[in-house]
């Protein structure tokens, strides 16, 4: 009970923190919308040349583009989320403050990141999606259940996204400077989440593997649920499995890190 209230408070804090930066949010929405337009016209050209590429028709492909732009901030596919902050805290030794608190480190950051994701969904997800729907013909569902299923897939996706970044951030305990690891994760994330091209389009074995990797839970999964290309329950199971596996792995790394912890600085 009490624990739930604590993490709810942390999540609320995470939400409000990002909500304070209104100009940054507006700039993000603008960028995502511009990129949405660029990608949308590229996809139109592509799908005109090769209709039904990856099993999508053009409307589905365009929906995919705008879902991608809407998820860009939510799933932290481009910008730095909490992991940069956590790494910095490890590097400077501020992590000491987090460690002596009577709270769980992973749960704490998960709660804060969930608050952030919720803000980004509302603040940076809705506007590009609406804009895309106004200017292009999208394959949006009419059944409210599909929308709800899509929201569940997004929620599960944010947990997977968090779990990946948490593990990466904890590497700072060993690497001290985690900028390289973060860059690598970012590049991997952009590619394997399907931010550039839907994973359905990837050929052969590469496509098979890409669709099984955890990153496909971030964008491909909710997009496919929305355009009706994937069975929602199967998708949830896939996402939840990755979430559990990665969170458990994160806990393992966390306990190893805190046991050998050398808190930096005086």
């Amino acid at each position: 009970m009490g624990t739930g209230r604590l993490y709810a408070a942390v999540a609320a804090g995470g939400f409000r923190r990002y909500a304070t930066y209104r100009v940054a949010t507006a700039a993000g929405v603008f960028t995502n919308t511009v990129f949405g337009f660029i990608l949308a016209y590229t996809y139109i050209a592509l799908w005109a040349e090769k209709p039904h590429l990856g099993g999508y028709d053009q409307a589905q492909a365009l929906t995919y583009v705008w879902v991608g732009q809407a998820m860009f901030a939510v799933m932290v596919l481009g910008s730095n989320g909490f992991e940069a902050e956590l790494m910095e805290r490890i590097r400077t030794g501020d992590i000491a403050v987090d460690l002596y608190r009577p709270a769980d480190l992973q749960a704490w950051w998960l709660a804060a990141d969930t608050g952030r994701a919720l803000f980004h969904l509302l603040g940076r997800g809705v506007a590009p999606m609406v804009c895309g729907a106004l200017f292009f013909e999208l394959a949006l569902p009419t059944d409210p259940l599909t929308w709800i299923a899509c929201l569940v897939a997004i929620a599960l996706g944010t947990v997977v996204s968090f779990a990946i970044r948490y593990i990466v951030a904890l590497w700072a305990f060993w690497l001290l400077d985690g900028a390289g690891a973060m860059q690598l994760t970012w590049l991997t994330g952009v590619f394997f989440s399907g931010m550039l091209l839907p994973l359905n389009v990837f050929p052969g074995a590469l496509g098979e593997i890409a669709r099984l990797l955890p990153w496909s839970a971030l964008l491909q999964a909710p997009a496919d649920v929305l355009v009706g290309e994937a069975d929602p329950l199967g998708t949830f199971a896939f996402q939840a499995t990755w979430a559990v596996v990665l969170l458990a792995a994160g806990r393992l790394v966390q306990s190893a890190a805190t046991r050998r912890v050398v808190v930096q600085g005086g």
């Binding site: 409000r16 923190r17 501020d94 000491a96 403050v97 002596y100």
Partner: peptide, 15 residues
């Protein structure tokens, strides 16, 4: 226990 590290803060920076 209560802990205060002079060079660090337990407060939420942005809030």
């Amino acid at each position: 226990i209560g802990v205060v590290f002079g060079q660090r803060t337990t407060l939420w920076w942005d809030l």
